[in-house]
Amino acid sequence: MAYFSNGTEGMMYEEKFCDRCLHQEGCPVWDAHLLYSYRDCNDEGSILHMLIPRDGAGNARCRMFVDKGLLSNLALLQYRAEAQKAEVAHG
Protein backbone atom coordinates (compact mmCIF):
# COMPACT_ATOMS: atom_id res chain seq x y z
CA MET A 1 0.00 0.00 0.00
CA ALA A 2 1.30 3.44 -0.85
CA TYR A 3 2.78 5.36 2.05
CA PHE A 4 3.61 9.03 1.86
CA SER A 5 5.36 10.52 4.87
CA ASN A 6 4.15 14.01 3.93
CA GLY A 7 2.19 15.90 1.30
CA THR A 8 5.27 16.69 -0.76
CA GLU A 9 6.07 13.00 -1.13
CA GLY A 10 2.50 12.35 -2.30
CA MET A 11 2.73 15.19 -4.81
CA MET A 12 6.01 13.80 -6.14
CA TYR A 13 4.33 10.41 -6.69
CA GLU A 14 1.46 12.13 -8.51
CA GLU A 15 3.92 13.97 -10.76
CA LYS A 16 5.84 10.77 -11.51
CA PHE A 17 2.86 8.53 -12.26
CA CYS A 18 -0.63 10.04 -11.88
CA ASP A 19 -0.07 13.08 -14.08
CA ARG A 20 0.89 10.71 -16.93
CA CYS A 21 -1.88 8.18 -16.33
CA LEU A 22 -4.99 7.71 -18.42
CA HIS A 23 -7.04 7.22 -15.23
CA GLN A 24 -5.87 10.42 -13.53
CA GLU A 25 -9.21 12.21 -13.53
CA GLY A 26 -11.43 10.68 -10.85
CA CYS A 27 -8.98 7.86 -10.14
CA PRO A 28 -10.59 5.36 -7.76
CA VAL A 29 -7.18 3.98 -6.70
CA TRP A 30 -5.95 7.38 -5.52
CA ASP A 31 -9.32 8.14 -3.89
CA ALA A 32 -9.25 4.81 -2.02
CA HIS A 33 -5.75 5.54 -0.73
CA LEU A 34 -6.81 9.00 0.46
CA LEU A 35 -9.90 7.62 2.20
CA TYR A 36 -8.68 4.32 3.66
CA SER A 37 -4.89 4.36 3.99
CA TYR A 38 -4.93 5.14 7.71
CA ARG A 39 -7.50 2.43 8.40
CA ASP A 40 -5.85 -0.23 6.22
CA CYS A 41 -2.15 0.49 6.71
CA ASN A 42 -1.64 -2.53 8.99
CA ASP A 43 -4.10 -4.83 7.22
CA GLU A 44 -1.97 -7.00 4.91
CA GLY A 45 -5.18 -8.31 3.29
CA SER A 46 -6.26 -4.85 2.14
CA ILE A 47 -6.55 -4.40 -1.61
CA LEU A 48 -4.68 -1.13 -1.21
CA HIS A 49 -1.50 -3.18 -0.78
CA MET A 50 -2.08 -4.67 -4.23
CA LEU A 51 -3.01 -1.47 -6.06
CA ILE A 52 0.05 0.62 -5.16
CA PRO A 53 2.58 -1.82 -3.72
CA ARG A 54 5.61 -0.81 -1.72
CA ASP A 55 8.99 -1.07 -3.39
CA GLY A 56 11.56 -1.22 -0.62
CA ALA A 57 11.37 2.15 1.12
CA GLY A 58 9.30 3.73 -1.67
CA ASN A 59 6.09 3.23 -3.59
CA ALA A 60 5.95 1.20 -6.78
CA ARG A 61 3.93 2.16 -9.85
CA CYS A 62 0.18 1.75 -9.49
CA ARG A 63 -1.02 -1.50 -11.04
CA MET A 64 -3.75 0.41 -12.91
CA PHE A 65 -1.25 2.81 -14.51
CA VAL A 66 -1.71 3.32 -18.26
CA ASP A 67 0.64 5.86 -19.81
CA LYS A 68 -1.65 8.22 -21.70
CA GLY A 69 1.34 9.26 -23.80
CA LEU A 70 1.14 5.89 -25.53
CA LEU A 71 -2.30 6.64 -26.92
CA SER A 72 -3.04 8.80 -29.90
CA ASN A 73 -5.09 11.94 -29.30
CA LEU A 74 -8.03 10.35 -31.11
CA ALA A 75 -7.94 7.23 -28.91
CA LEU A 76 -7.69 9.39 -25.79
CA LEU A 77 -10.73 11.46 -26.83
CA GLN A 78 -12.68 8.28 -27.55
CA TYR A 79 -11.74 6.79 -24.15
CA ARG A 80 -12.85 9.94 -22.32
CA ALA A 81 -16.14 10.08 -24.25
CA GLU A 82 -16.91 6.45 -23.39
CA ALA A 83 -15.99 6.98 -19.73
CA GLN A 84 -18.26 10.03 -19.58
CA LYS A 85 -21.16 8.06 -21.13
CA ALA A 86 -20.67 5.27 -18.60
CA GLU A 87 -20.62 7.75 -15.74
CA VAL A 88 -23.86 9.36 -16.89
CA ALA A 89 -25.51 5.96 -17.34
CA HIS A 90 -24.58 4.86 -13.79
CA GLY A 91 -25.77 8.08 -12.21
Rank of each mutant, 00 (worst) to 15 (best):
N42G: 09
A60M: 02
T8E: 14
M64V: 06
A32L: 08
T8A: 14
C21R: 08
G56R: 07
D55S: 11
L51W: 07
E82R: 15
H33Y: 07
A75H: 12
Q84W: 09
L71V: 09
C18T: 06
G10P: 00
L70R: 14
A2M: 05
D40A: 01
E9L: 01
H90L: 08
G91N: 11
F65Y: 08
M11H: 11
Q84S: 15
H23P: 09
L35N: 14
L34M: 13
L34Y: 09
G10M: 12
M12A: 14
A60S: 13
D19G: 10
Q84N: 12
E14G: 10
M1A: 01
H23M: 06
K16A: 11
N6A: 05
C21S: 07
R20C: 08
L70C: 14
L71T: 06
Q78H: 11
H90T: 13
E15I: 06
K68I: 09
E25L: 06
L48C: 02
L51D: 03
H23L: 05
R61Q: 08
K16T: 09
L48T: 01
F4S: 03
E25Q: 12
I52G: 03
I47L: 10
T8V: 11
D31G: 04
D40P: 00
R80L: 12
E9Y: 00
I52F: 05
L74Y: 14
W30C: 12
E15T: 12
T8R: 14
F17N: 07
L48Q: 02
G91H: 12
H49R: 04
P53K: 01
A75L: 13
D40M: 01
R61H: 00
E15V: 04
E44L: 08
T8L: 10
N6R: 03
L74F: 11
V29K: 04
H33D: 05
D19Q: 13
G91W: 06
C27P: 07
A60G: 07
D67V: 03
Y36M: 10
Y3R: 03
M1I: 01
T8F: 07
R54W: 00
A32K: 08
D55A: 09
E9D: 15
S46H: 00
S5T: 08
F65I: 03
G91L: 09
L35T: 12
G56L: 05
E25N: 13
Y79N: 13
A75W: 01
C41H: 05
M50S: 15
G10D: 05
L48H: 02
F4D: 02
L77M: 15
A81S: 14
V88T: 15
R20K: 15
N42Y: 03
N73L: 12
C62N: 08
S37V: 05
G58T: 10
D43A: 08
M12K: 09
Y79K: 11
A83N: 11
V88K: 15
H33S: 10
G10Y: 06
L35F: 07
